[in-house]
């Protein structure tokens, strides 16, 4: 059996088309961090529980630790590095900083991408809806309250844009 066979895979990462040869057993998390140097995406539990590895795949928040990279062929991936425009932070990023929703920052990329996915579908979420959307992102520092406030505030800013 032809195991280990590298497959040519093409996907878009943060707007750039990328062609890579990937071994089938590599996860999207492995490829983003190790092959593409996009280390903003974090590795926490690798069993689907913590959300640190969250990225957007065709606009939806998914866990890169449980996605085989080859299966992302033809898809559009957004990581935390793709959210800001040059030096200009995304409203979610600014709101997280201003509300003190970041402490150590390990959970933040995943939190922000989950929140971004929520706001794409629902520009005016209630605190309950925010909690539900972020229930797959664990944070050991902030106690979550400031995160929820930051997302509410970012939603307001985006609605005004």
């Amino acid at each position: 059996m032809q195991t280990h066979m590298k497959s040519p895979t093409t996907f878009t990462v943060n707007g750039r088309t990328i062609r890579v040869e990937i071994e089938p057993h590599k996860t999207l998390l492995d490829v983003l961090r190790d092959d593409l140097d996009l280390t903003g995406t974090k590795c926490g539990c690798e069993t689907g529980e913590c959300g640190a590895c969250t990225v957007l795949l065709d606009g939806k928040a998914v866990l890169s630790c449980l996605t085989l990279a080859v299966t992302a062929d033809g898809k559009n991936i957004v990581t935390i590095e793709g959210l800001s425009e040059g030096e200009a932070l995304h409203p979610l990023q600014s709101a997280f900083i201003e509300h003190g929703a970041i402490q150590c920052g390990y959970c933040t990329p995943g939190m922000i991408l989950s929140a971004n996915s929520l706001l794409n579908d629902n520009p005016n979420p209630t605190p309950e809806e925010i909690k539900k959307a972020l229930s797959g992102n664990l944070c050991r520092c902030t106690g979550y309250q400031k995160v929820i406030e930051a997302v509410e505030d970012a939603a307001k800013r985006i609605r005004r844009m």
Binding site: K60, A61, V62, S114, S117, G136
Partner: peptide, 9 residues
Amino acid sequence: IGTAQVRNM
């Protein structure tokens, strides 16, 4: 079921 990310997958 699960979390938002799990439901997307």
